[in-house]
Design a protein around this nucleic acid. Structure first.
Lengths: 160, 160
DNA sequence: TATAGAAAGTCAATAATAGTCAAGGGAGGG
DNA sequence: CCCTCCCTTGACTATTATTGACTTTCTATA
């Protein structure tokens, strides 16, 4: 009926529901032990069930006293754009970025200053990269798309 | 859940918070004794937690009456950082960027939200680029440095 | 002023975590 | 029956923390 995966998901959801800040901190090894499964199973659950598209953000630290922190965050209507970027990476021209940033500003998803920062990262920083190893147009497009995508993910964390 | 490292960091931070000049002077041996750990542990904490990317400067003296002085330094100019980025492109690790952004947030050069956007561009977007043409560590470091540099230039523009 | 001893620094080894990836398993649909 | 999509595992990798042996620098004082 329930897969191991589901059980772990439910367990974590319950923990978060009962937490004051929609945030919990766990240890991968301990949790894997409780469910008597491979530690990497926890990673699987995290990537499939607690990713940003489902409204969660995960951060972690390795080494002694390492941990995994899972936070529930609000998501909204930027999601379709991110999905678009995901599947059209190599098509994203500089002008598309410009357009998208303008739109974000108009819709007041971002401030003009934030727009400037994004242009700096996604346009200016990619202007003079002939000396670096990756200089094909599609590579630059992909890099641009990824910068933008990650930025949008952050924006949607802050919206609302 | 706190590691020894974390405890020592917190202890030092507390000392600095309570100091009149954002500066404290300690002895490595004494501190190591209080925490019942190897003296070199203190060095580890200093290099990982109290480096320049986190907004601290450390100076010390060996020999009799030796000491370690830790200062929280306020920044009033971003140019030095940009110059540093320019000449140390290939050395700029992910964790350095993380530290630097945290510092910028603390000093209120940027908002937490802007910090999130910069992290997205300079860290997240460069996380999984093995499929792109440029995948060497130094290439990624350089790309990271350039993204960051262009962003800092924009921040400067906005400050003036 | 020379020097012994009292600091702090460096570095490599080990341990304690978490992350990645590829291969195999099983249930359901065509 | 076989294909596909999840799930599950384990071997391998990466990162962070901790320690101790050894080195360097500086002060105090003989």
């Amino acid at each position: 009926m329930y897969s191991l995966c589901d059980s772990i998901e439910n367990y974590i959801i319950r923990l978060i529901d009962n937490s004051p800040n929609q945030t919990i901190t766990i240890q991968r090894g301990k949790l894997a032990n409780e469910f008597d499964c491979a530690p990497s199973q926890i990673n699987y659950v995290l990537t499939t069930r607690f990713n940003v598209f489902r409204g969660f953000v995960v951060e972690s630290r390795r080494g002694g006293s390492g941990y995994i922190r899972i936070m529930r965050v609000p998501i909204d209507r930027l999601e379709p754009i991110i999905i678009y970027l995901d599947s059209n990476e190599e098509l994203l021209k500089e002008s598309d970025v410009e357009d998208l940033i303008n739109w974000l500003e108009r819709e007041e998803f971002i401030t003009p200053r934030e727009g400037a920062l994004i242009r700096a990262a996604a346009i200016d920083a990619l202007e003079k990269v002939a000396d670096l190893d990756f200089s094909s147009v599609t590579d630059r497009n992909q890099m641009r798309a990824r910068i933008l995508k990650e930025i949008l993910i952050q924006i949607l964390r802050w919206v609302e």
